[in-house]
Nucleic acid binder design. Structure first.
Lengths: 119, 119
DNA sequence: CTGCATCCCCCACGATACTG
DNA sequence: CAGTATCGTGGGGGATGCAG
């Protein structure tokens, strides 16, 4: 594969995963869907274990892909709110279905799987 | 985060992504769904750019997670067939929906996106 | 509060060669 | 045909410190 193929999606499935894959994206989208609007610090607290670097970076990517909207209030102290775009809202149902599927799977194999502590 | 949290899913969404995330898993599942049964070499040809190492490794992981079935024919030359488990079949509709969503997105932003060459 | 800048490490993934 | 084995590397991600 040539260097230029880096960001080329081989198919639509790839395209989707490039946008909502990664370690935190799906979770962030999910939380934003559940709460409609979240501040930076709120997200940071919900996505356990994430660093500011990763949170900021991930939000920027989601913003670039038009999946989240960033609303900055120019005040001191700063206040920034994030929410989903309509495009992202269209996608959320799939995340929800995946969640349901996963929960069923987790229940069926109730060994070797650590307790799930999510929202 | 402690070392032992490596494979712990923080939530069901994580759990799902740990199983069907990665660079090739979704595509492999999709191809297997489309063709019902595929031999190793057939998969290798369909998943463009994948190496034998990654294909084998990915198939092994999917097998371990009970998403694909491996059927080996003890003959010369070797013949191995892969197919989806019922659990994976349950999941495929979501991949399909994601694909539809992605294709729509691709059509809407018909610039800077390379031609999608997938099945 | 909401970030940005650095430094650094690990491992997912690639390339290549070999085998029953 | 259907894989192993080995070696290398790029960048995703972590830790920490600073800033408006």
């Amino acid at each position: 594969m040539s260097k230029n193929d880096q960001n080329v999606a081989f198919c639509a499935v790839d395209y989707a995963f490039q946008r909502i894959g990664g370690k935190y994206k799906a979770r962030i989208l999910w939380y934003l869907h559940e709460h409609k609007v979240l501040r930076y610090g709120e997200l940071k607290r919900m996505v356990k274990g994430i660093t500011t670097k990763m949170l900021t970076q991930t939000l920027r990517e989601l913003e670039k892909d038009e999946l989240v909207t960033r609303k900055e209030y120019h005040q001191v102290p700063p206040k920034v709110e994030y929410s989903l775009t309509p495009i992202a809202e269209e996608f959320v149902p799939f995340i929800d279905q995946m969640r349901a599927w996963a929960e069923k799977r987790i229940k069926d194999s109730l060994q070797d799987v650590e307790p799930i502590a999510c929202y």
